[in-house]
Nucleic acid binder design. Structure first.
Length: 327
DNA sequence: AAGTGGCTCAACCGCCCTACC
DNA sequence: GGGTAGGGCGGTTGAGCCACT
């Protein structure tokens, strides 16, 4: 059964011929697509509007990048997928010229198998407990383990707080730096996550916790990230929240100021929470502190710095910090 | 040469969301 | 509020290709 937009008329299905492609390209480049359901008729095609849309988006668009994925693109897909999961359209937005379909196919045909071969669960990116990776992995080489696809990856575990680099053997969740719990676990703890340079950067954070209450303080040199534009309600909804964009404005202030964001999740299953914050501003050093109170058994924090740049995302040296507490 | 199985990827399917009436 | 259309997106399918037997 076809889509309701094309159920009324006879439509052709299957592969597109060069003639059909030519008709569609000619029409859209001169008229634009407008309403897709009217495109086939206007362009003289016996196709469903939806099919035209798909053909244009996935194949005929002039800004598409053809050819195989680069190592950097592969790394980006893996890193973003680890946070967002199978949200191909979202992942594809980080790869100029690539479509969600392309990313999805590449994942299913290539990356997924690579991860499995390395003993990693492609869904969680964690080590499969019973799996034995094909290649032996040195547990001390955390950065290499986490990003096995690129020796030149910009991601390094290089927290300014050296204690975070003291990792325990990676027998449970190898993609994360596991921090041994302190002898007496404090209910509240302030953790300096990282200090980094940024330029028009995003910070993408995900939380996977149980009954966790977290607040994050941003300090920003002589200016501040204004909290007033934040949609606070969306921060409290369970599940992934990549769309709760915090469109902060950076306003110069006379004195450093802190902003606090609170995340709270109710009882129940651990769920991934993610938020994305956009920062506009010049290169400046910014401190980021996280204060958390928790009573869960596991609490993962992941920070990723990226930059929206035409050549791709993710810039910076110590651009990712990952911590895990095992209480 | 023919058959088979695995792989890739373009295209479709079905569901969901939003806008509009 | 309910129905409908259009668009977006993730999952799935299947044609075509290739390597192997």
């Amino acid at each position: 059964m076809g889509h309701h937009c094309c159920s009324k008329q006879k439509v052709k299905r299957g592969l597109w011929s060069p003639e059909e492609d030519e008709k569609l390209v000619k029409y859209i480049t001169t008229h634009g697509h407008g309403c897709w359901s009217s495109v086939p008729k206007q362009a003289g095609l016996q196709r469903c509007g939806k099919s035209c849309r798909l053909r244009w988006i996935n194949y005929l668009r002039p800004d598409l990048k053809r050819g195989s994925f680069s190592a950097q693109e592969e790394r980006i897909i893996i890193d973003v997928h680890r946070i967002l999961g199978n949200r191909w359209a979202q992942i594809a937005k980080h790869l100029p010229g690539r479509t969600d379909n392309e990313v999805k196919n590449f994942w299913n045909s290539c990356i997924k198998k690579k991860l499995i071969a390395q003993g990693l669960d492609p869904k969680t990116h964690n080590l499969i407990p019973t799996a034995r990776p094909n290649n032996s992995i040195n547990s001390a080489n955390i950065s290499q383990f986490h990003h096995p696809h690129s020796s030149t990856t910009p991601f390094t575990i290089s927290s300014p707080n050296k204690s975070f680099e003291t990792a325990t053997p990676m027998d449970m969740n190898p993609p994360l730096v596991t921090v041994p719990p302190p002898p007496t676990l404090p209910l509240h703890e302030t953790i300096p996550i990282s200090t980094f340079q940024y330029q028009d950067a995003n910070v993408l954070m995900s939380f996977k916790d149980q009954n966790c209450h977290t607040s994050i303080d941003f300090t920003h040199g002589s200016s501040s990230l204004d909290q007033t534009n934040m949609s606070s309600s969306s921060f409290h909804q369970p599940g992934f929240m990549d769309d709760c964009m915090w469109a902060s404005t950076v306003e110069p202030l006379e004195a450093p100021r802190q902003n606090e964001v609170e995340f709270q999740q109710g009882q129940g299953q651990a769920q991934p929470l993610a938020c994305k914050m956009d920062f506009d501003g010049p290169n400046e050093e910014k401190g980021l502190e996280m204060e958390s109170s928790y009573n869960s058994s596991t609490f993962d924090i992941e920070l990723m710095e990226s930059a929206l740049m035409p050549s791709g995302i993710f810039c910076g040296g110590s651009s990712i910090e990952q911590l895990q507490w095992d209480c």
